[in-house]
Nucleic acid binder design. Sequence first.
DNA 1: TAACCCATGTAAACGGTTACATGATTTC
DNA 2: GAAATCATGTAACCGTTTACATGGGTTA
Lengths: 191, 191
Amino acid sequence: MRVLAGALLGLLAREPLSGTELNQQLQHRLGAAWRAGHSQIYPELARLEGEGAVSHEVLPQPDRPAMKRYALTEQGLGRLRAWASEPGEVSAVRDELAVKTYSLWLVNPVAAAAVLAAHERHHARRLAFYEGLLAELERAWDAEGGALGSPLFASVALVRRGLGYEREYTEWCRWVRARLARAPTTPGAPA
Amino acid sequence: MRVLAGALLGLLAREPLSGTELNQQLQHRLGAAWRAGHSQIYPELARLEGEGAVSHEVLPQPDRPAMKRYALTEQGLGRLRAWASEPGEVSAVRDELAVKTYSLWLVNPVAAAAVLAAHERHHARRLAFYEGLLAELERAWDAEGGALGSPLFASVALVRRGLGYEREYTEWCRWVRARLARAPTTPGAPA
DNA sequence: TAACCCATGTAAACGGTTACATGATTTC
DNA sequence: GAAATCATGTAACCGTTTACATGGGTTA
C-alpha cells in the first residue's frame, strides 16, 4: 500500500472526513510524518473507494458547496491494520540543508550563519508548537486511562517523534552556528 | 539548482571522481542527507558538463573498463558556493514508520513492538557507525587546527546531524516500545 | 568460448508538485 | 451581475525508482 493511502485511512479511522478536511488534517496532525497536496488526495480517495476501502455520502451544507464525507469501511480498517503491522523499510532522509552542510567549508561563515539561523528559527517554532500539543494530548490520554487502544496513544507517540526531531534539529543548528561564530575568517571561505 | 546537482558538486569539490565513485560516496558520505541511484547520477553529470560546471577526462585502467573522471570547473565551484549560501526551504519529512505510528492504536501491541524493535536496531546500528566516524573526523580536524575552511569541518557538521537524528530516532523507538510493553492487551487492538 | 563483472548508460513506470479548470454559493 | 470563495477535480511537468541494455575485461 502507498504511504499516502495509509495516511488517509489512518485519519478516517478516527472520524469521517471530506477531501478538504483530510487535506487540512494531513497537514496538522500528520505534518511531522508526511505531506501531500489536495491534487494527490482526491485521486487517492477515488482509488480507495474503487477498492472498497472507503465509502462516501454527499453532505449538503447550508451556506457552502456540498462535500463528500468519506468513511472507512470494514475492509479499509482491515487493510489499515495489516499495513500498520508490516515491518517496512526505513525511510531515506532527504534534507537539502544537510546536503548544503557538506559544502559549508566553501561558504563565507557569516552568510552560512544566517542560513542556519533561519532554519533554527523554523525548527524552534515547530518545537514549541509540539511541546504545547504534547502536554495537551498527554493530559487527555491520562484522563482516559492511558490505554494503548486509544487514538490518543498514537497521537502522543507521533507528536513525540516530531518533538524529538525538531529539538534535535534546533540543537544541531545551534552547534553549527556556535562553530561558525568562533573564528572570523578562514582560508577557503572568501567574503 | 537541484539538490542532486548540489550533492555531486559538493563531492567533486573535494576530489575528482568517476560516476561509480560518486555513486558510492553519495551513499557513504552523504547518506544522512540524500540518496540516489546511478541511473540518476549519469544523466545529471552529463547535464552539469553541458552547463560547464564539470569536466571529465577518460581514465584507462589496467584491469578494468576505463572510467570518466569528473572534476569541478571554476564555474562549478562558483555555482556550488552560491547554492550552499542560499537560504532555501525547510525540507519536508517523509517517514513511513511515523505515518504508521498514527494508526498504532489499531495494532496488536506485540506485533507493533516487533516492528519498532526492527527499526530501533537499524537506527542504533547507524548511530554506532556515526559515533565512530565522528570521533575519527574530529581527531583529524583538530589535528589540522580546526579551521572552518577545511572540508573536515563540513564533514563533522554533517555527521553530527546524522548522529543526532539516529540517536533521537533510537530513543523514540525505545520510548514507544516501553509503552507497548506496559499493558498486555487493550480494547481496539485485537490479536 | 562461455560466464561473469564492472562502468556506463537508457527506458518505462511511479509519485509528487504546480498549474489550470469547474460549478456552486456568498458578497460587493 | 461581477468578484471572491470553497470544494472538487484534471493535466502537465519533473524527479525518483526499477528494470533493461551495452561494451570492455577478466576468469573458468
